Computed example of a mutant assay.
Amino acid sequence: MTPREWPAETKQRAEKAMADLEAFYGDFCNRTPFGRRPETPKLEQLHSRVMGAS
């Protein structure tokens, strides 16, 4: 199986989405369970962006 070459735009979108997800996850882990609840919708949005870029 040959590796797939992704267009530059797709790579950039994926890298940006992953960077946002990593930053969000770091903040999320540092919050208390009560402080995490309002952040949950952001996680779903980031998940959609990551999946859309792949």
Rank of each mutant, 00 (worst) to 15 (best):
M1F: 12
M1R: 02
M1E: 10
M1K: 06
T2W: 08
T2Q: 12
T2S: 13
P3S: 04
P3A: 05
E5M: 10
E5P: 01
W6N: 07
W6D: 10
E9V: 07
T10L: 14
T10Y: 04
K11C: 12
Q12C: 03
E15N: 05
K16H: 13
A17H: 05
A17Y: 01
M18F: 15
M18Y: 15
M18D: 13
A19F: 00
A19M: 00
D20E: 14
D20W: 03
D20M: 03
D20R: 13
L21G: 13
L21I: 04
E22I: 10
E22C: 03
F24Y: 15
Y25G: 09
Y25C: 10
G26S: 13
G26L: 09
D27Y: 10
D27E: 14
D27F: 09
F28G: 06
N30G: 13
R31Y: 04
R31E: 09
T32F: 05
T32Q: 06
T32E: 10
F34K: 07
F34M: 07
F34T: 07
F34L: 09
F34G: 00
G35A: 11
G35I: 00
G35H: 01
R36F: 00
R36C: 02
R37F: 04
R37N: 04
R37E: 01
R37M: 02
P38C: 02
P38E: 04
P38I: 02
E39F: 06
E39A: 05
E39V: 00
T40N: 03
K42Y: 02
K42S: 00
K42M: 01
K42V: 03
L43D: 04
L43Y: 00
L43N: 05
L43S: 10
E44R: 02
E44N: 07
E44L: 02
Q45P: 02
Q45T: 10
L46K: 04
L46W: 01
H47R: 11
H47A: 14
H47I: 12
S48L: 11
R49G: 03
R49C: 09
R49V: 00
M51N: 14
M51V: 12
G52Y: 08
G52N: 13
G52S: 03
A53P: 08
A53F: 09
S54Q: 07
S54T: 05
